[in-house]
Design a protein around this nucleic acid. Sequence first.
DNA 1: CTATTTGTCCGTGAACATTTC
DNA 2: GGAAATGTTCACGGACAAATA
Lengths: 462, 462
Amino acid sequence: MPVNSFDNYPMSWKPDKNALKRPYYQSIASLLEHDIKNGFLASGTKLPPQRELADFLDLNFTTITRAYKICEERGLIYAITGSGTFVAPNASRSITISKDKTASLIELGLVSSFEQTNALVKDSIQQVVNKSYFEQLLDYNDPTGIPHQKAAALNWMESFGIHTDQEHLAIVSGAQNALAIALTALFEPGNRIATDLYTYSNFIELSKMFRIQLVPITGDEFGMLPGELDKQCNKVNIHGIFLMPSCNNPTTIMMSDFRKREIAEVIRKHRLILIEEEIHAFMTAGIVSDYQQPMFNLLPEQTIYICCTSKSICSGLRIGYIVYGKAFCEKILQSIFNINVKTSSFNAEIITELILSGKAHEIVLLKKQLVQTANDIYFNNFPFDKNVGHPLSFYRWLPIQRHSDALELETDLQKLGIRAFHSDRFLSGQTPQDKYLRIALSSTNSLDELKVGLRILNEYLN
Amino acid sequence: MPVNSFDNYPMSWKPDKNALKRPYYQSIASLLEHDIKNGFLASGTKLPPQRELADFLDLNFTTITRAYKICEERGLIYAITGSGTFVAPNASRSITISKDKTASLIELGLVSSFEQTNALVKDSIQQVVNKSYFEQLLDYNDPTGIPHQKAAALNWMESFGIHTDQEHLAIVSGAQNALAIALTALFEPGNRIATDLYTYSNFIELSKMFRIQLVPITGDEFGMLPGELDKQCNKVNIHGIFLMPSCNNPTTIMMSDFRKREIAEVIRKHRLILIEEEIHAFMTAGIVSDYQQPMFNLLPEQTIYICCTSKSICSGLRIGYIVYGKAFCEKILQSIFNINVKTSSFNAEIITELILSGKAHEIVLLKKQLVQTANDIYFNNFPFDKNVGHPLSFYRWLPIQRHSDALELETDLQKLGIRAFHSDRFLSGQTPQDKYLRIALSSTNSLDELKVGLRILNEYLN
DNA sequence: CTATTTGTCCGTGAACATTTC
DNA sequence: GGAAATGTTCACGGACAAATA
């Protein structure tokens, strides 16, 4: 019997005692999930401490621990020792970003890749179809890529500073697919991965799906803070870290070379597996003066480096490269076979042809011009923070005051005919004060449409 | 203190007491995993009962329960209440089947799809490249497939008896990819899925990777036994069932229509999610007289139907169709976005063009002739059980005596220049007495090579 | 058919670590 | 800087269920 009556005691969540069935911990978890998903408990709400709820329900407190744990694994809540347990941001809805088929909105949400350049691909496909070995591009051979395709891939990545050989490379179906492969190959449910506080929302969802816990690490203008990472590693058992050093998505922050070395030191010390995704390397290497090298070079044995040709060459062919240390080889290959069997050699050959013929470089040049203009248009509308983040990013990170409710803001914008995403979608952990909008610059049908979209946005925010 | 000295007592596994560290359960699990993976404990070995090992180690028996549970989740062991705990078949090695790049063996292992027909695809690619809307095949739009592509897919599956609409269909990257999507979308680590005792080995590996437990159900010549399924469902909490009714891989068993209805009844009763993979529907519908319909028709609301064009049309384009009940829609789409983002519309368009132009039917006709001849060649060499299983299967299931050690047999065959797989690879549960070889008939470079391979095999086995 | 063997499930309590005040 | 609040970890034991002898 509980000693006190809790009727007058403030408790943010009071499950119905009569609804409890055995096993209690599952029953409690279900009730909590229900109440969160149905909006009775808002993001950020502090739940009753384990011992208090246990008292209320007349159970041992570790039974509550287990109930909370289930919900935490589902990404619904998060707990901080000493502080309490809270409802997670994005708990009640999926934040996966994908193309919205309905409505003819001006797309500033999903980051595409200036699809205007796709016409340039046609010739290369023609070349591939006419190749003497065309039929061999349509079978089950070479599941990680045909040697000459891998050679072209190495050639392509050489300019970003990647030096490795064909044994440590596989061709997969895009960056997202590479992440799914890396996560299933190298992590288990319950494992923890450190990420920037704001990170790629599809990575957040992917982790949730595979029951991998994200540990948010704060950062500054040069990227993630090594001290914070070290602190968290000492506190809990962290297995990996996910970074986008050449241009964080969504914040556009580029990690300085000095910071890369500091972070690499912490990663080495704690033997983390580094997943390094370089969506913007082709827009960084040789352009941004501070860019020296990928972190893969600093930690070649413990890094999975992901390079995707979707943003740089052609998104619709779904080709990405995954580079890994020797220790990961077997597990990665296993996972590729399990998830894809293989990526089409035909598609890989088209990308290969584009690279070898020089067409890929032409496309990149064109995209550079487009992204330069798009950024100019953006800064005409929002002339703040011009020196923050990557100068040629495909998207921008706009601080906003007011408009704090994420869903409301996004819905408002849709009513005005534009789609853009609130910063809450990209949160890997607790909610900070500052709010932002991620504005994709590369997804409108034309630069004129981008102008219109940004003007509407500007008017709305003022 | 343990009461007895176990030094003289027969215990199949005695972990080193001094090697134990806290937490004990993890330490024990690691030791056990090590000893299994290094071959100190052979498949099928009975481990000490929980209470006995606990006594030996001077621990509570539930601590052993937890250690065993970890290894069971990793697919290393399996436990039967009342009987004991045993080392799993295939515990010490991966059984994923993929193309072996090394050595020029005669391929009777991996099931390809008579790749001789791939030349016929060329014209259709040409057609696609010349289409007016070619550029729109290279962007992020329509992540589940462009409407007319879906219409063609429905058209294609109509002949197998699938009647549904575009809302319940998505285009993915092959059957294996579809399975990965279905498993991650609809199941959680720890869930159980019923399968035939012998089932698709890559499905076994995929389940292992996602920590999903397989529950083997025995069957007869008409397929899985409904009584056995019902019994297992009553015993443990089973969430789903995986079936290949039109032609089981590897046994070639076709489920009779009567049996489909019986099994469907059990599935409905226990509210299982049915994953139905139809690799051979195009070789069954309209050819085999008993074929009436897929099980999807019997359970449209709780089935995931997977149809792959790799075997029937062209493997190298990696296109599969996934059909699902309304309740699964959201989760399946979410998983597609997370794992693939999308499947290339360009590849999907080529398959669409093949279907709409009638080329696909030509290819199927050609494959039918090839598979007929291949089966004739097989039965010339092994004139037994001619009426067992699917008459036009791409592979056959050959009973073998002696040669019981799987690895040894496969290695022996490789030395003779052929690759084929022992039945142990396809086992989802405990090891039965009977042994088989799965012989792929569709993967050699020519039918002549198949003849040579089967002759060598025949000589070896006699 | 009953007793025994064996695995499963789940609530408990002690020891501990971190954060907050 | 120490006490209180709060979450984490893990070994334990009782009740139960299934298979076997």
